[in-house]
């Protein structure tokens, strides 16, 4: 048994609702998950399922009401700012929207140097590291002096990945990092994620709504629905032979890029929906 890098147990996240004595909104209802070093855990779900909230809870950006998030045995659910700082070289993030995740008024070099300056890296080492990072994500070193707007979505996402890599973390939370990208760009960025993982042994918590994307990158996959994990297991099993009714619906709802097979899948889906409706009806009767 390998050791566990991140161990999430029964995490509950409540968001306060504005207004006097309003019940808070429970975004996560007791979620448990673990990630091993060098592993990709995919987190699939629809909007509002709580998948992004779980990622933010790991990053310390969402308020954890109860439960524990153990990073290498240490609870990181309620850290002070200073303790978070120490953790920032261990856990990093790549966000969904490559257009708002980079400050538009800073150059690429300034953006990439930022996490390094916190570590008190000298100016000379820092700019050397920036060139190195750009090289790692497949961008020319001349990119350093330019502004984010001069880059396409895929290139910006590469910059965001470079920023996440700057501190050589062991875990990167990826929040829908390819869903804003075109198909061919998406494939290349996923390839980059894979290659970086193979080279550095970093682990990913990979959040996405797209089963195909999650399948291509993840070792294990968790499916979230209404703030809970409804199915959790090896990628191939969850994404090709799902067991939970919701995962089955999700699986059959995604259209296959093949007219013949899609016709088949459409029929399967309608049959599944009919069967599930029947079951719900019976469950209601009983």
């Amino acid at each position: 048994m390998t050791d566990v890098l991140l161990d999430i147990t029964n995490v509950v996240v409540d968001y306060p609702i504005k207004g006097f004595r309003k019940e808070p909104f429970r975004a996560l209802k007791g979620v448990s998950l673990d990630i091993r070093p060098g592993e990709t855990v995919g987190l699939v779900g629809e909007s509002g399922s709580g998948k992004t909230t779980l990622g933010r809870a790991v990053l310390g950006l969402a308020p954890v009401t109860s439960g524990s998030i153990l990073y290498r045995g240490k609870d990181i659910a309620h850290l002070s700012r200073g303790e978070r700082l120490a953790l920032s070289s261990e856990i990093q993030v790549v966000f969904q929207d490559p257009y708002t995740s980079l400050n538009p008024s800073l150059t690429i070099e300034q953006i990439l140097v930022e996490p390094l300056t916190v570590r008190k890296v000298s100016q000379r080492d820092a700019s050397k590291r920036v060139r190195d990072l750009l090289d790692q994500v497949g961008l020319p070193t001349s990119a350093a002096d330019r502004l984010p707007r001069e880059f396409s979505g895929g290139q910006r996402q590469r910059i965001a990945i470079a920023r996440a890599l700057a501190l050589e973390p062991r875990l990167i939370v990826c929040d829908e990092p390819v869903s804003a990208l075109d198909l061919s760009t998406q494939a290349r960025v996923l390839e980059l994620f894979k290659e970086i993982q193979e080279r550095t042994g970093v682990a990913y918590l990979f959040v996405s709504h797209d089963l195909a994307v999650v399948r291509s990158l993840s070792h294990r996959v968790a499916v979230m629905y209404h703030g809970e994990i409804v199915e959790w297991g090896d990628a191939d099993q969850v994404t090709a032979r799902p067991e939970h009714p919701y995962t089955q619906r999700l699986f059959l709802a995604a259209p296959v890029p093949d007219p013949v097979r899609q016709e088949q899948r459409r029929a399967d889906r309608q049959r599944l929906l009919a069967v599930q409706a029947e079951q719900n009806l019976q469950a209601g009767v009983l």
């Binding site: 198909l183 494939a187 996923l190 990158l217 070792h219 191939d236």
Partner: peptide
Amino acid sequence: QSLFEAILEDGDAREPLQDT
């Protein structure tokens, strides 16, 4: 053809991570 190649649907899932 290149667009079809970029489609992920038919790809294999990754194997479960082997113990180091």
